[in-house]
Computed example of a mutant assay.
Amino acid sequence: MTAARWVVPAEERTVADTAEALFRSTFGGAADGVWAAPGRVNLIGEHVDYAGGLVLPFALPYVTVVAVRVRDDGILHAVSTHTGESWRGALADVAPGHPSGWAAYVAGVAWALRRSGLLTAGTGFEVAVHSTVPVGSGLSSSAALECAFALAVADLAGLPTDESGRRPLIDASIRAENEIAGASTGGMDQSVAMLARPGHALLLDCRDGASRHVPLDFRSAGARLVVVDTNAPHRLVDGQYGNRRAAVEKACADLGVATLRDVADADAAVAALSSPAAQRARHVLGEIGRVREVADLLDRGRIADLGDALNRSHASLRDDYEVSSVELDSAVDAAVEAGAWGARMTGGGFGGSAIALVPLDRVDAVTENIVRRAESASLPTPQFLSAEPSGSAHRL
Rank of each mutant, 00 (worst) to 15 (best):
A78E: 00
A78C: 04
A78K: 00
A78N: 00
V79E: 02
S80K: 01
S80D: 01
T81W: 00
T81G: 12
H82V: 03
H82S: 07
H82A: 13
H82M: 03
H82E: 03
T83K: 01
T83Y: 02
T83P: 00
T83V: 01
T83C: 02
T83S: 14
G84A: 05
G84Y: 01
G84P: 02
G84R: 03
E85W: 01
E85C: 05
S86E: 09
W87N: 05
W87P: 03
W87G: 06
W87Y: 13
R88M: 08
R88L: 03
R88P: 00
R88E: 07
R88N: 00
G89H: 06
G89T: 05
G89C: 04
G89L: 05
G89P: 03
A90S: 15
A90V: 01
L91T: 02
L91V: 04
L91M: 07
L91C: 03
A92M: 02
A92S: 15
A92Q: 06
D93M: 03
V94P: 04
V94S: 07
V94W: 08
V94I: 06
V94E: 07
A95D: 09
A95L: 03
A95M: 04
A95P: 02
A95C: 07
P96A: 14
G97R: 11
G97L: 08
G97Q: 07
G97W: 06
H98A: 14
H98W: 03
H98S: 13
H98E: 08
P99D: 11
P99E: 06
P99H: 12
P99K: 14
P99A: 14
P99T: 11
P99F: 11
S100T: 15
S100L: 06
S100N: 08
G101R: 11
G101M: 05
G101Y: 05
G101L: 05
W102K: 14
W102M: 14
W102F: 11
W102R: 14
A103S: 15
A103G: 08
A103L: 12
A103K: 09
A104N: 09
A104E: 02
A104W: 06
A104H: 08
Y105R: 10
Y105I: 04
Y105E: 08
Y105L: 05
Y105M: 06
Y105A: 10
Y105W: 05
V106Y: 15
V106N: 12
V106G: 12
V106P: 04
V106H: 13
A107W: 09
A107D: 04
A107M: 11
A107F: 08
G108Y: 13
G108Q: 13
G108T: 09
G108E: 08
V109A: 13
V109Q: 10
V109F: 08
